[in-house]
């Protein structure tokens, strides 16, 4: 009889604990669900996302000329390269195998990449114009700007120098200038982002 009473009490306690567990879980679940909208509201909003890609008309850019457009709040360099600039960039290419691993790097590139891997059409070099050192905008878009020893860009903040493929050659920057996602919608229109 004592056993029966004991087990009944035990069963009652299990039921009670289950209820408390369910209630506490419901409260925790509710709290977690409520937190998400707050955090999500800090993510980019609709109007910011709408400007996450831009279409640029490049029909007016002459050979040897460069334009700068604003994309996601940052400058994007679009340079129409001369054949000499393309050749110079290719001369410094590292040797890569079929998989893309670097076999040799005669030019001593800090961030070895082939020029071909950085462009879709060799004539058009499209780069994010932000120095990979500490974020300044390198000079070299205007013909009057200094371009550094390698004919590309020169960053006035700490002296980083980029070549005609936008690769870092000299100075403190660790990486080549970034290449954004882009597609040529038409021959004269490129969509960035």
């Amino acid at each position: 009889m004592a056993d029966h009473a004991h087990s009944a009490q035990g069963a009652g306690e299990t039921r009670r604990d289950f209820l408390y567990l369910m209630s506490a879980s419901a409260a925790a679940f509710g709290a977690a669900t409520v937190v998400w909208p707050f955090i999500s509201s800090m993510n980019p909003s609709g109007d910011v996302l709408a400007l996450s890609s831009i279409e640029v008309d490049i029909s007016g850019v002459q050979v040897g000329q460069a334009i700068t457009v604003k994309w996601r709040g940052k400058p994007v360099f679009i340079r129409r390269r001369t054949p000499e600039e393309i050749a110079e960039a290719r001369k410094a290419d590292p040797e890569v195998d079929a998989k893309g691993n670097v076999i040799s790097n005669p030019a001593g590139l800090r961030d070895p990449q082939t020029d071909a891997s950085r462009v879709k059409k060799p004539e058009w070099l499209i780069l994010v114009g932000v120095c990979t050192h500490l974020g300044c905008v390198p000079l070299g878009q205007k013909s009057s700007d200094p371009r550094g020893e390698f004919g590309g860009w020169y960053c006035p903040c700490h002296g980083s120098q980029y070549d005609t493929s936008g690769r870092i050659r000299k100075g403190p920057a660790p990486l080549d200038l970034a290449v954004p996602d882009y597609v040529f919608e038409k021959d004269t229109v490129v969509k960035i982002g």
């Binding site: 209820l19 408390y20 369910m22 209630s23 419901a26 409260a27 679940f29 509710g30 669900t33």
Partner: peptide
Amino acid sequence: FLVAFTLLFYAA
């Protein structure tokens, strides 16, 4: 959710 929550806590 709130109906379930309220019922649970009422039972508790």
